[in-house]
């Protein structure tokens, strides 16, 4: 776990070196969140669907976001965007069920990234296995803004791993997957999967984890990283 000052200086540094004003403002807006209690800040759970697992050659298919305010997941503001890709959905369609025909409603990467920044500005990102999602988003932002920035997000997978290891449990294969992690908190099984539902599922998992860690009224945001 990174201590708060280190986390803060890292974020300050990232803000300082960012050139594009919109991206700079985005990073800036996050700074004051770190010292606050989890319940006092705006969080947003996100999930991405991709054509593969390699950010260098695979593409984002869809992005789901759902805000969490004061410990409540707000379905009213849950949103889902499909992103245009080059070529076909191909084999990955069998996993995420997005077919080429759905992609007709899709928006360009630039539009998607502008939308993403606007709906998540000033909010702390939350994702399950966040490094993967962030790598794709950073790639997308680089395409849209011609600048490579580093994003940060609370990783519910990392939180779960830390918790299990602290309890000296042997990590079984698959034990950290979203569904398996949720099951440990008695959270319901969601049969359907898309970026939006997985974002909601990830948000619910975070609420359960925060409760297990002592509650959102006591826990600092920086303690989640």
């Amino acid at each position: 776990m990174l201590h708060h000052p280190m986390l803060k200086s890292r974020l300050c540094w990232r803000t300082a070196i960012t050139q594009h004003p919109q991206l700079k403002a985005y990073q800036q807006a996050l700074l004051e969140n770190l010292a606050r209690n989890v319940e006092q800040v705006s969080l947003v759970a996100i999930d991405l669907e991709m054509t593969g697992l390699n950010p260098a050659c695979d593409q984002i298919l869809s992005i789901g976001v759902v805000p969490i305010e004061q410990g409540r997941i707000l379905l009213q503001q849950a949103q889902h965007k499909l992103v245009q890709i080059e070529g076909s959905v191909g084999q990955s369609a069998t996993i995420h069920g997005i077919l080429d025909m759905h992609l007709q409603q899709a928006v360009s990467m630039k539009t998607a990234m502008q939308w993403f920044l606007s709906v998540t500005q000033g909010k702390v990102l939350v994702a399950h296995h966040s490094p993967l999602d962030l790598a794709f988003l950073q790639e997308g932002l680089a395409q849209a803004y011609n600048e490579h920035i580093k994003l940060m997000a609370v990783d519910t997978l990392a939180l779960e791993k830390k918790r299990l290891l602290r309890q000296h449990e042997v990590l079984q294969e698959g034990a950290l997957r979203l569904g398996a992690s949720r099951a440990r908190y008695g959270l319901p099984v969601y049969a359907a999967h898309n970026a939006l539902i997985d974002a909601i599922a990830c948000g619910e998992l975070l609420l359960a984890q925060v409760a297990a860690m002592g509650g959102g009224d006591k826990l600092k945001v920086s303690e989640l990283f």
Partner: peptide, 11 residues
């Protein structure tokens, strides 16, 4: 759509 979701811990 109108729902919000919360999690309550017995703690």
């Amino acid at each position: 759509r109108a729902l919000t979701i919360g999690y309550y811990s017995k703690a």
